[in-house]
């Protein structure tokens, strides 16, 4: 009996010490982790826009996130866009709901600190209180609108689509005319060495510079990648070609289909179709959103 009580006592003490160590390091590291994650995401986004350590982004550049929600009320679905409102305090947001056919439905103003807006949970709560009960809210996606001195520069679209094995998570950068500025693969589970090659410059950079018209009917060809084009695609890494040369070659191939990866045609096709889908949906939606914002005189910083 005495044995058991010592065992229990010592085990409890060990657990307590272990919990203290783990809890302590969790508190210390968690903040750093979140901070680093944000910094990293920011870095990826800026690099997609063509900025780097050598060419830092100007201070006038601003990123404005727009969150899209699905609002359902008794079988009627509408789209809710959470946009920042310009001209007032920084915590002024508006939820603009738009019917499926693009007509304006309602505007709900809400106050939400920008740091809180980045937290999915708190944002959802704020949106739910704004629209009132009786409606179900479902988060759909996020778009980041990039402005420079109030002028719209680019769109950043985080997205997800099925790959060959599971899903592929990407961030896509578009200019205001929906020409692709860049593609970054954030997460994937394709086979290393085969489909996993989608993260390589010579594949993902093929999307760079594709105009919207070409993108709409973009396909995949099973041809070897021309050496000249490959050189241009990898110029960022190798630094062998000058920017003018790269631009010239890119121009030459801008309407060409995507060259499939060797041994991973399906992965290549999935990425191409996924990118196509993201851009098409976005181009369709942003037109409605812009029109509604203009009609309703909602002043936004982008």
């Amino acid at each position: 009996m005495k044995d058991i009580s010592t065992i229990i006592f010592r085990l409890t003490l060990t657990c307590l010490v272990a919990a203290l160590i783990m809890g302590g390091s969790f508190i210390v590291t968690n903040r750093a982790k979140q901070h680093n994650q944000q910094v990293n995401e920011q870095k990826v986004m800026l690099s997609l826009l063509g900025y780097s350590a050598a060419k830092p982004a100007p201070a006038s550049l601003a990123l404005h996130p727009v969150y899209r929600y699905l609002v359902t009320e008794q079988d009627v679905q509408t789209l809710g866009y959470l946009v920042p409102v310009a001209g007032g305090a920084t915590d002024a947001f508006a939820l603009v709901t738009i019917a499926l056919d693009g007509k304006f439905v309602a505007r709900h103003d809400l106050r939400l600190a920008p740091e809180k807006a980045e937290q999915a949970k708190e944002r959802l709560q704020a949106v739910q209180t704004a629209v009132g009960s009786g409606k179900t809210i479902q988060y759909a996606d996020q778009t980041i609108i990039v402005t420079d001195n109030g002028q719209r520069q680019a769109y950043l679209l985080p997205g997800e689509f099925p790959g060959f094995k599971t899903f592929v998570k990407v961030i896509l950068a578009l200019d205001p005319g929906f020409t692709v500025l860049g593609l970054e693969i954030m997460e994937h589970e394709e086979d290393p060495g085969l489909g996993g090659e989608i993260v390589q410059d010579y594949f993902k950079n093929q999307f760079r510079g594709k105009p919207y018209e070409a993108l709409k009917k973009l396909g995949v060809v099973k041809e070897p990648l021309p050496d000249e084009y490959r050189g241009a695609l990898e110029a960022g890494k190798t630094g062998r070609l000058g920017p003018e040369e790269v631009a010239r070659i890119q121009e030459q191939y801008k309407d060409h289909d995507i060259y499939a990866l060797t041994g991973a045609t399906i992965s290549s096709r999935s990425v191409t179709n996924g990118v196509k889908g993201i851009v098409k949906k976005f181009a369709y939606r942003i037109a409605f959103l812009d029109r509604v914002l203009a009609e309703q005189r909602i002043v936004v910083p982008f």
């Binding site: 160590i21 390091s25 590291t29 968690n30 680093n36 994650q37």
Partner: peptide, 12 residues
């Protein structure tokens, strides 16, 4: 757990 959290935070 400790090294896992440290690596995730500082060397993502």
């Amino acid at each position: 757990t400790v090294i896992d959290m440290v690596l995730a935070a500082y060397l993502p």
